[in-house]
Design a protein around this nucleic acid. Structure first.
Lengths: 203, 203
DNA sequence: GGTTTGCCTTGACACTGTCAAGTAATATTG
DNA sequence: CAATATTACTTGACAGTGTCAAGGCAAACC
């Protein structure tokens, strides 16, 4: 049907814009993501993206939302086999690092409030909250005798902070000296740090 | 002497540019720091800053370098009284958080490699390294029987990651729900997280 | 058939960082 | 002291940006 074809065409352009944005970001970093270059890559006029997104920030918010979904998948699938508190902490931490290393620019984007203020984009915010809640239930609900309705967030946030800080420092090259060049080396070294924390976290 | 007057005038303009940059950054975030607006604030032409700095990045590098110096001061003075490993970890962590909260934009700048690639600015790089080494000696050299020439960095990086991740998540508003509104509340909550880590770090 | 609507284009504006050239004062040198 | 070179800027220009405004053009609807 015409409506289907048209609708597909519409989605094609929209998807093309997002795809071009992602590619541009991965090639030249967050700064290389310009509205006009995105349009150029997607093969449309410089103003076409504004039909699908309110502004530059809306594109970033959508990409960030997708990122949170993917991070959620990373964490949930990593938690699959882990039973005890220690291995759960380690598994989720390692997944966090792996995601950050595999999707560096998206990860940066997800945690830079001035790039896309998530409070303005409820969809992306919901996806972010879903991630946070996954961390809480993974690390807290299996704890001792905590009140599940009102859990003590301090340990959870400590774990999150460790993984997040490690990922950030890695991506920003602040650990270059000790952490090797290849992605595998860096991930292995990071996992040792996660293990150090997880060991102590469980007690 | 004329040379002194002139030299003072020169430094005045340079200092004015840096001061305007800092003010602009603190008012409107990193994105608000534009070369031309800085010049406008400093009361000079839009090209004058290029006499003192190669480009925008050079200004950022200088500000970041100043930030690392200040962070160093925060940490060293916080370590003053702390003797045992646990209280050292807590003191340095709290200082890290306090610095981040008190100098939010500068802190962000310091840890964003694409804003100013420190490898291109040896002075700023040296100041950053000084901070890192301070953390290492504070947390490792007082450890058990570690080889001081070649210390095991895993615990140090774990501690740094926790503090850094916590600071980052705080500044990006990702902990808004649980951490209160005022600066004092947020700092107090953060310190509980740091304490949680420090307790386990010392063992 | 005429009108509305959705999709997209072209054009313009104010703004950005930075290269290039010019200018006035100061310092150096013959 | 006069000529020259250097310093400390200024003005001007260029390519690029995000985004508002207006227009076109096809399909959909009444």
């Amino acid at each position: 049907m015409t409506v289907a074809t048209k609708s597909a065409g519409r989605d094609d352009v929209r998807a093309g814009i997002l795809q071009a944005s992602l590619a541009l970001m991965n090639e030249g970093g967050l700064g290389a993501l310009s509205m006009r270059e995105v349009a150029r890559r997607a093969g449309v006029s410089h103003q076409a993206p504004y039909h699908y997104f309110d502004d530059r920030e809306a594109i970033l918010a959508e990409l960030a939302g997708d990122g949170f979904d993917k991070l959620y998948d990373y964490m949930v699938s990593a938690l699959g086999h882990a039973r005890d508190r220690r291995s759960r902490a380690q598994a989720i931490g390692e997944a966090y690092i792996r995601f950050a290393l595999n999707h560096q620019e998206v990860f940066k984007l997800m945690f830079r409030c001035e790039m896309c203020d998530l409070s303005r984009y409820p969809d992306a915010k919901a996806k972010a909250d879903r991630c946070f809640n996954a961390v809480v239930t993974a690390l807290d609900a299996h704890g001792a005798a905590t009140d599940k309705a009102n859990p003590d967030l301090v340990p959870v946030i400590a774990a999150w902070s460790t993984a997040h800080g490690l990922a950030t420092l890695l991506l920003e090259g602040k650990l270059g000296m000790a952490f090797g060049d290849t992605l595998d080396q860096r991930e292995a070294a990071a996992n040792r740090v996660i293990a150090f924390f997880a060991d102590r976290f469980a007690k």
